[in-house]
């Protein structure tokens, strides 16, 4: 029972982070139909920028967070404007490869400036533990779940209520119709990349706080694929369900069966979903003759 509770808490917090990382991925796919292979590197850049502001430049926590957001916004705008926009209308392979190239560039830039060693960062979230039903649970894991829930709620409120959020949904639904209604599709594309970079920043900083500020953060980007395929490539609620499912599954498999197997289980789920229901649980069903 103790193992179960702690595995569940770890799985839920991993899942919450996965959902945050997947959120950016889905935003980009929904608005621009681009698969972003550099999502993991966005997390990495976010975590290192926050580290730079918080530890290297010794800024207060809030200012450091704002600095991180600023860098994320710039990154999103630059990537969209100079790399993705010229490729609008190109084949899927070109778009995939350009984000792969981008991921190589971002990762090696971080390596050039910060090296490969693990960086020390004082914990942001409280590190104590609480005892629930005889199980000790780290507080920071619980807080991560809470923060992710707040951020995800804020994002869905943004899509439901705000002008820009509704414009983004309109563009995702039908680009031409949105254009005729006077929505600037270009601005929506930029906004999607900016929001993706910001949500990646939040996920990256939280992930770095749970583990460490290091290059491995980028590896998180690959597990995003099973999450988004499970939830549906263009569904925001899907990322939550997909993230939590994959997070819990990984923890249970690694706790009860075999940690090595836990690495490959998400991909087995991915293949199963692709065979049974390729558009995922909440994804829009598009019938495409192959």
């Amino acid at each position: 029972m103790n193992t179960f509770i702690s595995l569940t808490v770890y799985g839920l917090s991993d899942g919450a982070l996965l959902a945050l990382a997947a959120l950016g991925f889905v935003l980009i796919y929904k608005a621009t139909r681009v698969i972003n292979f550099a999502q993991g590197e966005f997390l990495l850049v976010g975590a290192y920028m926050f580290y730079t502001a918080f530890v290297v430049m010794r800024l207060p926590l809030v200012v450091a967070a704002l600095f991180g957001v600023l860098v994320a916004i710039v990154l999103g705008v630059v990537v969209e404007r100079f790399i993705l926009r010229p490729l609008i209308g190109e084949s899927a392979i070109s778009v995939i490869m350009v984000t792969i190239g981008l991921s190589a560039v971002l990762k090696s830039l971080i390596q050039i400036f910060y090296g490969t060693s693990v960086r020390e960062q004082p914990p942001i979230l409280p590190t104590g533990t609480i005892t629930v039903a005889g199980t000790t649970i780290p507080v920071n894991r619980l807080l991560v779940i809470g923060i992710a829930a707040i951020v995800l709620t804020a994002f869905s409120a943004f899509f439901q209520r705000s002008r820009h959020g509704i414009a983004m949904r309109a563009v995702a639904d039908d680009q031409q119709a949105a254009l005729t209604m006077g929505i600037s599709v270009r601005r929506v594309f930029t906004l999607a990349w900016v929001l993706a970079a910001v949500s990646a920043l939040i996920a990256g900083v939280l992930l770095a706080d749970l583990s460490a500020v290091e290059q491995n953060i980028a590896a998180f980007g690959l597990i995003v694929f099973p999450v988004v395929i499970l939830g549906g490539l263009d569904s925001v609620p899907g990322t939550v369900l997909g993230g939590l499912t994959i997070g819990l599954l990984k923890q249970y498999v690694s706790g009860y069966a075999d940690p090595g197997l836990a690495e490959v289980v998400p991909y087995l789920v991915l293949v199963a979903i692709l065979i049974v229901r390729p558009y995922g649980i909440f994804g829009e069903t598009r019938i495409e003759r192959v």
């Binding site: 790399i83 190109e90 190589a104 050039i112």
Partner: peptide, 19 residues
């Protein structure tokens, strides 16, 4: 920095060719 530079040039080559 050689391994990192190599990766950076590799990534830049892909992006530049595609664009």
């Amino acid at each position: 920095q050689l391994p990192a530079i190599r990766n950076a040039v590799f990534g830049v080559a892909i992006i530049v060719f595609l664009l």
